[in-house]
């Protein structure tokens, strides 16, 4: 064991509060005056440390402590500090809710102006194709407003000021541009497509009974199979 190892062993033993040094350290110390001196100085330091700690940890308790605590046992606990009363929080919550609702209700609906076969999604707006204007106004089509819808569409076809605008997907932009170019020539077709179907279109058609000259038609006997 060299002096460095011995001194480390001395420190560890003192820090652990060991009564005796480990055998090897003690053996080295008997033959090494430097380590013996080191042990004495460190033992003195640890002794002072213990004395200081004992003094710090065992301060005399003031006689007034317990009577003061007893005197305050019946006191009501202090109210917790609240930076805002309950109604204030409720008011803030109501305002936030109102603003959120208003925002949601006034969100523009992302529906296309055109019939379903040309309806577009919002992502195509970033790279407009020449001839297709960037989205500025979105018109919501409605079955109940078929005439308005048609007027808007006609106006668009005629190039008036109220041009309806649509949002076009990038992959559909070329086809859409072509469609717009042909719009002026095929107004009737587009109007037919854009026209809302009447409400009774899906009703079953009434079929007239079959009549063939010279042939008598009899209903099938329900009892005959």
């Amino acid at each position: 064991m060299n002096c460095q190892q011995s001194q480390k062993g001395i420190l560890d033993a003192l820090a652990a509060g060991e009564a005796k040094l480990p055998g090897a350290v003690a053996a080295h110390q008997q033959d090494c005056a430097a380590c013996q001196a080191y042990f004495e100085s460190q033992a003195r330091l640890f002794r002072q440390l213990e004395e200081g700690l004992t003094a710090i940890a065992n301060e005399e308790v003031p006689a007034s402590l317990l009577p003061r605590v007893r005197a305050r046992l019946d006191e009501k606990p202090p109210q917790r500090y609240s930076w805002m009363p309950g109604w204030g929080l409720a008011a803030i919550a109501a305002v936030i809710l109102g603003v959120s609702l208003g925002f949601v209700l006034h969100q523009p609906k992302h529906h296309a102006v055109l019939p379903e076969n040309v309806s577009m999604a919002a992502r195509g707006a970033e790279n407009p194709v020449p001839g297709v204007r960037p989205p500025r106004k979105v018109v919501t089509p409605s079955l109940n407003h078929g005439h308005e819808h048609r007027r808007a569409f006609l106006a668009a076809a005629n190039g008036s000021e109220t041009v309806p605008e649509v949002i076009v997907l990038p992959e559909e932009q070329a086809a859409f541009a072509k469609f717009v170019r042909q719009l002026r020539e095929q107004q009737e077709v587009i109007l037919a497509v854009a026209h809302a179907a009447p409400a009774n279109d899906d009703l079953p058609a009434e079929i007239a009974s079959l009549e063939i000259e010279g042939l008598e038609m009899k209903p099938l006997d329900p009892g005959w199979e």
Binding site: L11, D12, A15, L45, L49
Partner: peptide
Amino acid sequence: VKSRLFFARKQLAEKLR
């Protein structure tokens, strides 16, 4: 407890040295 005590004493001694 023992290990905390050991490290506490050692650190204190180093600071006081």
